[in-house]
């Protein structure tokens, strides 16, 4: 379990997160939604220990970050490192033996190719494969479906369900509501650095309609499309 209490984060004078309280339990999938710049990525970075923050984050683990698999929105890859070497590096980092890689290459990635030459979607799939091979207990996936083809989106959705049944904690942010609705147990709405709403599975459809109404409103009509 991960418990976040009164989490705040400032960048200079700009308060990005403001008194966040939330708990993530094992065997559950959490969705975080919010506008661009609402603080989703910052929240993920704070949980992972990549950012300093005010407040408290506690967990069942002595060092939480060592059990987190973090998928970044835009994974970064070194120049002239093959995908296989990247996976090796990530497994070495967590002292995990890398075995039967070819059978575990569920996205059929060309592992001998330089990772930096991969397309956006392939990079995401490679980074996801890496954190899965690390055998983490918690997964924080920042926009896992972005730039990924339909087939792989289906695989990722199934993977998330599998992680849930394996009693892992999964936290996802996505702008694609259908994927969240399919995989999450609850969705939290982040606005201006605060959680303004928690929505359970049975209310997902009403949330989508509500968000559509408030987000779109009459904005499109304001634009003079001819």
């Amino acid at each position: 379990m991960i418990k976040i209490q009164q989490l705040s984060k400032f960048y200079g004078k700009n308060e990005v997160l403001n008194g966040i309280n939330l708990s993530f339990e094992k065997g559950k999938v959490y969705g975080i939604v919010g506008d661009n710049g609402s603080g989703k990525t910052t929240l993920f970075r704070c949980i992972s220990g990549l950012e300093k923050y005010n407040g408290k984050i506690t967990s069942d683990y002595s060092v939480l970050k060592n059990h987190i698999g973090l998928l970044l929105t835009e994974p970064y890859f070194f120049d002239k490192i093959t995908a296989r070497e990247y996976l090796q590096l990530m497994c070495n980092a967590r002292n995990v033996q890398l075995e039967n890689l070819d059978t575990q290459n569920i996205f059929d990635l060309p592992l001998k190719q330089y990772a930096s030459t991969y397309s956006t979607g392939m990079k995401k799939k490679l980074a996801l494969t890496a954190i899965l091979l690390q055998k983490n207990e918690c997964f924080i996936l920042d926009e896992p479906f972005n730039g990924v083809d339909i087939q792989s989106n289906m695989i990722i959705s199934e993977l998330i369900k599998k992680l849930k049944t394996a009693e892992k904690t999964v936290v996802i942010s996505s702008h694609i509501f259908s994927t969240l609705a399919e995989t999450c147990d609850e969705i939290h709405l982040l606005k201006n650095g605060q959680f303004v709403r928690k929505v359970l599975k049975e209310e997902f459809s009403s949330l989508e309609a509500e968000m559509k109404y408030f987000t779109i409103g009459n904005r499109i009509d304001q634009l003079n499309i001819y």
Partner: peptide, 10 residues
């Protein structure tokens, strides 16, 4: 150097 990425392999 592939077994111990990344500095030497890259």
């Amino acid at each position: 150097f592939g077994k111990r990425p990344f500095e030497f392999s890259s």
